[in-house]
Design a protein around this nucleic acid. Sequence first.
DNA 1: GCGCCAAAATTAACAGCGTTAAGATTGCAG
DNA 2: CTGCAATCTTAACGCTGTTAATTTTGGCGC
Lengths: 203, 203
Amino acid sequence: MSEHYQKGKYHHGDLRRALISTAIAILESEGVTALTLRRVARETGVSQAAPYTHFRDKSDLLTAVCINGTEWFGEYMKREANGKTGADYLAGLAIGHIHFATEHPALFRLMSTRDVAESLDESGRIPEIFHEGYRILAEGLAAAPLEHFGSANRQLDIPLAWAQIYGISNLLIEARLSPQTYGFDDETNFISALVHRFLGNDA
Amino acid sequence: MSEHYQKGKYHHGDLRRALISTAIAILESEGVTALTLRRVARETGVSQAAPYTHFRDKSDLLTAVCINGTEWFGEYMKREANGKTGADYLAGLAIGHIHFATEHPALFRLMSTRDVAESLDESGRIPEIFHEGYRILAEGLAAAPLEHFGSANRQLDIPLAWAQIYGISNLLIEARLSPQTYGFDDETNFISALVHRFLGNDA
DNA sequence: GCGCCAAAATTAACAGCGTTAAGATTGCAG
DNA sequence: CTGCAATCTTAACGCTGTTAATTTTGGCGC
C-alpha cells in the first residue's frame, strides 16, 4: 500500500513515517474530513491502535503532518525564488507561496489552523525555513523599491504584503477568486499578474 | 436554556430558529470542534433526532448558520461604513470586515469554507448584502484615488484589495499577526492603521 | 546459541458521533 | 370529536477517537 519499508522488517518497520505518509496521501486526495486515524492505520496495514505507539493522539499526528508540510512549503517557495534577485526574488517567494496553497489546499489549510500552529510553536518544531520564508519576504520588502507606497510607516508594509499573499492564497483555495472573472483563462498567469501588480514591478 | 419560544408552545415551537441559535452560541463560545448535532439538540432541550425534522443533515444546519452569519456580517460592514464617503467609506467596509472576523473567528471561518460556500451558492440563499459588500468594495476601489498604484491593469486592484482585507482578517484570526510586533498595543488601532495604509489615505 | 525484556503491535471495549427507521404525540381542519 | 399530517422520541446501525489488557518480536547480555 505504501512504499515505506515493510521490506525485510515485518513486524517492526518505519511505521511512524509510513503513517505520516499515508495521512498526507489521504489529505491530498480526499481532504481533511476523510482523514481519520482508523483509516490511516487501515491503509498503512496496521491495527487501529498501532498509531498510539508513535503518536500521543490524532492531533499529534496532524502536527507531524504539518511539520512535513512546512518543510515542503519552504522548499517550494525557495525553489521558485532561487536564482532571482531583488524584486523578482520577492515575487518568486510570493508565487511559490500561492501555488503551494492552490496545489495542496487541504494541507495548506491544516497548516494554517491556529490550534495546530500553537502546538507547533510550543514544541518549537516549526522548521526554520517556514519563518525564514516570511523573514526573507519581509527583508525583500524592506529593500524593494516601494516609492509608490508613499513614505509613512513603512513597517506596516511588511504585514500588509504578508496578508496580501496569504489572502490571495486563501481566496483562490475557497474558489471565491476566479481567473476568468478578470480575463485570465490560466490560473498561473493570473497569479503572476496579481503578484507583479501588487509588488509594483509590472510592465 | 435558550430564550427561543418555549413559552406556551410546549411540543411545537420555533425549533428551527432555536437550533440555529444554539449552534451559533456553541460556535462562538467553544469553536467548531465542539459543534455537534447531538449537542445542539441536547442544549436546545430536544432529542438527538429532532433536528432532522428541520434540517436534512448536519451540513444543512451549518448552511443555515452561515446564512445567519452572512447577514450579520453584512450589517457589520454596513454599520461601520455608514455615513462615510469616498475613501473613508471603503475603509469603513474593510475595518468592519476585519473586526467581524476577529470577533467571530469560528463563524467567519465556517463561512469561508469552500464546501459550505458551495452549498450556499447552489441554493442561491446567500443574502445579497454579502456579495453586496464586495461589490461596494469593488466600486469603491474603482472610484478611489489610486494614482499611486500606477496605471496598468487597474482591474486587478479589485481582487487585490479583496485579498488584502481577507488576508488581514485571516492572519489576525490565526494569530500570526500580532499588533505588538509592529508597535501597536491595541488591535483596533493596528487594524485601522493597516487599512488606511494600504488604501493610501494615511496621514 | 539462548532466554529474557522492553518495544511494538494486536484485540476488545467504551463513549460519543451522524444518521435512519419505526413509533408515539400533538395541534388543527373537517 | 375524529383523523391526519407535522413534529418529536426512542432505538439502533456503523463509524470515530481513545484506553486497557494482551500478545508478538527483535536485539542484548550471557
